[in-house]
Design a protein around this nucleic acid. Structure first.
Lengths: 344, 344
DNA sequence: TTGTATGCGTTATCAA
DNA sequence: TTGATAACGCATACAA
């Protein structure tokens, strides 16, 4: 049933030499005759020998595997991050084990536990929306277990965090709206326990203040689910309520922005003439929508790359936690499109 | 540096009993006194013992890990499939190792090789666009190695394939366009070496024939890249060329359909009045676009679930290849939206 | 230059 | 009911 992989034992038998010689010959140890090396390699080739990674893991207590824990694979941003992770890991000879938590705290904990049993060399974690307690992380960090957090990062000591500059991204987005003459700007916020969302809101607030606009708390609305239907309803209702209508929306993410667009459309407002809209994430859909959606680009792939490089360096002791200036903050970029371009 | 996990040896020492007794107690072997069991479990709990999965793998030549090989993680369809895979695997106690080929044949082969060294219990594969030679698959299949192919499946003996009914989906889509009064229907096809694309084209052709429409080969255009820019240009150029303009587009996927929409918009055609458009995959964007895009829903999550269930059953010898009626074909569903609704 | 023996953590076989 | 030991595949300290 299972494949019969050749082992160094098979090679040794075939050549009537010891397995240690084979082992050494395969790894080009200096003190092995080149003749032996040649013969060993020939047989290895012929038997299609591949080192048994499991045996190696056991021997070295290292598995050359990193564990990735994310809330949801089906999410454009996370999938780009995974892509970056996979790219670096694979090029440096590591495997990637992937699990999703579906935004559940319990699954996050159990996934970590399973992976621990699998001797993985380190974790890359973006935690779930439910996660409010970080003990399962600190327990590992205390024991010096290599973990790099990305995007959804915890505010705890010694954590190595890789994030995008959510604050600056939000600040730029809001400033852009202001510069286009929009004055009464709604913010559709995300769950506040997520630092990223908090930071985006902070950027929004600071941008308003910096431009002398008083912050109107009733214009900051939380969209915990982050789906278009939700934000559509919220925006729709808000517009019905208010006498003086807002003239712009800065959304915590693109899906939420889309909901806002839908609401505006139904209410008969023109975008960007009556209402300006800016999203966050710069998903593929942004350029496809009509009007195209201005959004803050988050370098997902780069986050994956950067975070993985750091993790592997930690694992291979090429660096240590105290040498890393955490958080590592990657730049966002405001992609200005038609949904917010009122002045030319 | 690394975590010091407790082993059965530690438990044995603490209780002054042998490791075999500990091993057996932990697994509730019948002939172990319940007193011993209780003590062992207590200590295990206290030391936070977790069985070392790597040692287990070595011992059993089973890793409880399945390898997933896909072209690209950053792809809505594949990410939904992964989600389904992860769901089933995790609930049945398996890990998922993920690699992407980036549509490269060489990476496909090397990824498979790496995973083989990792003692993974089986493969789930959707092959790359470059893959035209299936020897790396047949070599494994010949040795009875468990593989389940999904979506992009090879036409080889003994392969277990899980696909959606691309033919029927395309047939339904085209029939729908015809029923809405569209007559001159373009097909934006995918690369023909992919069976899924071939099947979609076949469905298109058969639907036309079945309704007495002669197939015009000049209306079948290949969009190998499958990005909006490409199909936009192709459609734009075609419309410039032709005297009698086509009145509908059936696209091989949603992105290609979006390109067609863009072209139509620029050419001043109204959708769905002048031109009807139908895509394939039913991405999230479909309902967000203006007009919303009619598309063929592919049950990605279900594919992942079904394929994984079969793979795990194969691995656990709950079924055998000859008992499986391959291909397993999952139903598509035409999601009719505004881009093709001309009659009411 | 090569061989022997040990151990990584676990299960299974045999013996007690 | 329990214990000693071999084995899974490999790397390596120690011997030769």
């Amino acid at each position: 049933m299972r494949i019969e992989q050749a082992t160094i034992k098979d090679i040794a038998q075939e050549l009537n030499i010891s397995i240690s010689t084979v082992s050494r010959a395969l790894k080009d140890y200096p003190r092995i005759s080149s003749n032996t090396k040649k013969k060993v390699k020939e047989v290895a080739e012929r038997l299609n020998y591949r080192p048994n990674a499991v045996a190696l893991s056991l021997r070295k207590s290292r598995s050359f595997t990193i564990g990735v824990i994310i809330p949801d694979v089906v999410h454009f941003f996370f999938s780009t991050v995974i892509s970056g992770i996979e790219e670096v890991a694979s090029s440096r000879g590591y495997n990637v084990i992937l699990t999703q938590t579906n935004e559940r705290f319990e699954r996050e904990k159990s996934n970590i536990n399973t992976m621990l049993g699998n001797q993985i060399d380190g974790f890359m974690i973006s935690f779930s929306k439910e996660t409010k307690d970080f003990e399962h992380f600190t327990k590992l960090l205390d024991r010096n277990y290599p973990i790099v957090f990305f995007d959804r990062v915890p505010d705890i000591e010694n954590a190595v965090n890789v994030v995008v500059d959510d604050y600056q991204g939000a600040y730029d987005a809001t400033t852009h709206l202001i510069s286009q003459g929009y004055k009464k700007i709604i913010h559709l916020a995300g769950p506040k326990n997520l630092k990223i969302c908090f930071e985006r809101e902070r950027g929004y607030r600071d941008a308003l203040s910096a431009h002398g606009i008083t912050i109107d708390e009733s214009l900051i609305l939380e969209c915990p689910l982050g789906v278009p239907e939700e934000s559509k309803k919220i925006v729709y209702d808000l517009f019905q309520e208010l006498e003086i209508k807002p003239d712009a929306v800065f959304a915590n993410n693109d899906m939420v922005a889309v909901g806002a667009m839908m609401a505006c459309r139904e209410l008969g407002f023109q975008i960007p003439k009556d209402i300006g809209i800016v999203g966050f994430s710069n998903w593929q859909i942004c350029s496809i929508l009509e009007p195209s959606l201005t959004s803050v680009y988050q370098p997902g792939f780069d986050i994956g790359v950067k975070a993985t490089e750091i993790l592997l360096d930690l694992i291979e002791n090429k660096t240590s936690i105290d040498q890393i200036a955490s958080p590592i903050v990657l730049k966002t970029e405001l992609m200005i499109r038609n949904s917010s371009k009122r002045l030319f």
